[in-house]
Amino acid sequence: MPVDGAPQGVINVIDGIVEPERVCELRGTIKRAEHMHEVQSVQPTIKKRRTKAKTVITFSDRGLARVYSPHNDALVITLHVNNLDIKRILIGQESSCKIIYYETFKQLKLEDKDLAPATSPLVGFNSMPKWLVGKIILLVKIGSVTRQVEFWVLKVLSSYNIILGRD
């Protein structure tokens, strides 16, 4: 499905489950979960290889007009996916996976039959394994760049529609 042209619709927000007063409480839980994930994960040996050129997204000082520094705010963007603009996409600096939540997946008018099987759980949420519904490759456009991105589909509640991890 082409991603050029005007979007056919917009996916805004999935209701969140985190109240603002619980953020500090959850921060410690998240840190413990990240630590447990790091301790329990097995990392393959990384072979040195040639790095390919990556597209870099930059921001000017104009974008900081209403931001109080220093800050640790999350970077939340909008992407064009399957002819829809999807809002509330978190850029996760400490994550290496790309997650699309099941409710967002369904709003893209996709079906379970479009998914490839996923055979391993995702660890990192509450340090409990979460089984993936499957995985899917979607065309994603940001600015003038269009790429195929493999997403893991996860069926849990989230304040975000997608989480994009580092490459």
Score class of each variant (00 low, 15 high):
S127Y: 05
I100F: 08
Y160N: 00
H80M: 15
C24W: 10
N12E: 06
I30N: 14
L157N: 12
N161W: 03
N161D: 09
R50N: 13
K98A: 03
G134K: 02
V123Q: 04
V133D: 02
G28I: 01
S120W: 11
I46W: 06
A116Y: 11
I99E: 01
L84N: 07
L64K: 07
R22I: 00
P129I: 05
I136N: 03
F105P: 02
V149W: 05
L64N: 08
R147C: 13
P70I: 10
S69N: 14
V67E: 06
S159Q: 10
V56E: 12
I17V: 14
Q107K: 15
D73K: 12
H35K: 15
M128N: 12
Y68E: 10
D85M: 07
L75M: 12
W131C: 12
H80A: 00
Q148E: 12
Y102K: 05
S158R: 01
R88H: 12
D4V: 04
I11F: 03
V10I: 11
V81Y: 00
I17K: 10
N82V: 04
G9M: 05
F105E: 02
V18A: 13
F59I: 08
A116M: 10
P44M: 14
V10N: 10
K135F: 06
V18M: 13
P70C: 07
D61M: 12
Y101K: 00
E25N: 13
Q93D: 09
D85C: 12
Y101Q: 01
D167E: 13
V56L: 08
V39H: 04
T45D: 09
I86G: 02
H80L: 05
L164I: 10
I77E: 00
V39L: 13
T51N: 13
A33Q: 06
N82A: 14
D61A: 11
A118T: 09
I11H: 01
R27F: 08
I86V: 15
K109S: 10
S120N: 10
K155A: 14
G63D: 05
K141I: 04
D15Q: 14
K109P: 03
S144D: 14
V23L: 11
T146W: 01
G165F: 01
V156I: 15
V39A: 12
K109E: 14
V3K: 02
Q148W: 13
S95C: 15
T146F: 06
P7E: 04
L154H: 00
V13P: 00
I137F: 03
E150Y: 08
V67L: 15
L90C: 04
K106V: 06
P129T: 05
L64T: 02
L115D: 01
